[in-house]
């Protein structure tokens, strides 16, 4: 029998020790003073890495190697693009894609791109699709295509750099669940490497999926 009271009692015992919490508070305050994260929502990114090879057994996830590269400098080119240089001298172009979602508000389909809202109900009803595009002066283009309805939708987000698509993913209303891999299942790439320290042979284009200020997680481009 599922007894909510027993469950609440059990959850109540799940606590963080006071000394650990205190340590986290101090560390967070120290970190905030030192580092401003360059990304707000780096979901996927495309990267061209000169002289880097992902030395991974391509179809063998177990063989994925961990490499680590220290990021030396980060220069923001535009709102979607940043240029990074590692301590080893490799240059990486990173494209960050904003958070996108469609909310069903009393039957109205509201597309949210980076907290900017627009009602796309009519477009979906009449054409079955809605396309949001934005191009920066530096020629980085974000494209968000929504199909379906307020209840059941699918969003394809893609980025183009100088006319060439460099990354895309698709998510849908069915994927609000939190199971791993749901959004990333249909990336155009499916192998990954975590970079943090040079030393392995790399010479292939990669996608950067995450960057926390010190290390980047990358995926090789097929």
């Amino acid at each position: 029998m599922f007894d909510p009271q027993v469950y609440r009692e059990a959850c109540g015992k799940m606590t963080v020790p006071q000394d650990k919490l205190e340590e986290m508070i101090v560390m967070t305050q120290a970190k905030e003073k030192k580092v401003r994260r360059p990304f707000r929502a780096a979901l996927i990114a495309a990267a061209a890495v000169a002289m880097m090879v992902v030395g991974v057994g391509a179809a063998n996830p177990e063989a994925v190697q961990e490499l680590f590269v220290q990021i030396a400098t980060v220069v923001r080119v535009d709102e979607y693009r940043q240029e990074m240089v590692t301590s080893e001298g490799e240059s990486i172009t990173v494209l960050s894609i904003p958070e996108v979602n469609v909310e069903n508000r009393d039957g109205q389909a509201i597309l949210i791109v980076d907290e900017e809202e627009r009602d796309i109900t009519q477009a979906l009803a009449e054409q079955g699709t809605y396309v949001y595009e934005k191009t920066t002066p530096q020629d980085t283009k974000l494209c968000v295509e929504v199909t379906g309805s307020a209840e059941q939708w699918e969003i394809t987000v893609s980025m183009e750099e100088e006319g060439k698509q460099v990354g895309s993913f698709t998510t849908s209303s069915e994927e609000n669940a939190l199971a791993p891999g749901q959004v990333q299942d249909n990336y155009s790439v499916n192998e990954g490497v975590e970079i943090s320290k040079a030393g392995e042979e790399l010479n292939k284009e990669i996608c950067v999926s995450e960057y926390d200020g010190e290390t980047a997680t990358v995926i090789p481009v097929k």
Binding site: P61, E62, V64, L178, A179, P180, G181, Q182, V183, Q184, G192, E194, S209, E210, T217, I219
Partner: peptide, 16 residues
């Protein structure tokens, strides 16, 4: 908290 948990669950390393 949910969003950050999601990010971790989606990460390649976690998935594999």
């Amino acid at each position: 908290s949910v969003n950050e948990s999601r990010k971790l669950l989606r990460s390649f390393w976690r998935r594999t």
